[in-house]
């Protein structure tokens, strides 16, 4: 897998398939990037579980946090890692100890751990590194353009509206 560039179709397929996301390193501080991403993914209908040992039992963004991936009471589709590149290795190993395995391990912008990625890919887990799921979702659904950001997507298809005000979605798999 080439981790220097990902096709839009690959990222779109991941974001459509995934439903439950464990966010390791989620912060309760509402101006931290991890809090932004957590709130955004919740608003897009994902079941997000904040993982932060210091916050276990408290709520982050209105959702109960847990101390570790092992403490999650339901299958996790994707583990999103908000830790530095070195620490990400240990988080990947914890994710690979889950049963069932997550389908996707996603490392945030600036986070890359090639060895850990190789371990996960050997087990059949899809790995995305050095990307943000909020930015990727907003880019692919078109919302990011509202901030004057170039999405890199050129298409004459109509964006998919979601319920509520000013909300786009990724649409169905046939789109």
């Amino acid at each position: 897998m080439d981790h220097d560039r990902y096709d839009d179709a690959h990222i779109r397929a991941i974001l459509r398939e995934v439903k439950t996301v464990a966010m390791v390193g989620a912060s309760p501080n509402n101006v931290r990037p991890s809090f932004f991403v957590l709130k955004y993914l919740l608003s897009k209908g994902y079941d997000v579980i904040p993982v932060n040992p210091g916050q276990a039992g408290r709520e982050i963004g209105g959702v109960p946090a847990v101390a570790s991936l092992a403490a999650i009471d339901r299958p996790v589709d994707m583990v999103d890692i908000f830790r530095n590149s070195q620490a990400a290795g240990g988080v990947v190993d914890e994710a690979l100890a889950l049963d069932p395995l997550p389908k996707v391990i996603w490392m945030q912008l600036g986070v890359r751990n090639e060895e850990a990625a190789a371990r996960a890919e050997q087990r059949g887990v899809t790995v995305v590194m050095n990307r943000c799921p909020k930015i990727e979702y907003a880019r692919l659904c078109g919302e990011i353009g509202w901030a004057g950001v170039s999405s890199g997507v050129v298409s004459s298809r109509k964006p998919t509206m979601a319920a509520g005000m000013q909300r786009f979605g990724l649409g169905k798999k046939t789109d």
């Binding site: 078109g142 353009g145 170039s150 999405s151 050129v154 298409s155 004459s156 298809r157 109509k158 964006p159 998919t160 509206m161 786009f168």
Partner: peptide, 12 residues
């Protein structure tokens, strides 16, 4: 192509 298309899509 970008001059014509970039940033635009049919109005949702």
């Amino acid at each position: 192509t970008l001059s014509v298309h970039a940033g635009s899509a049919p109005d949702p």
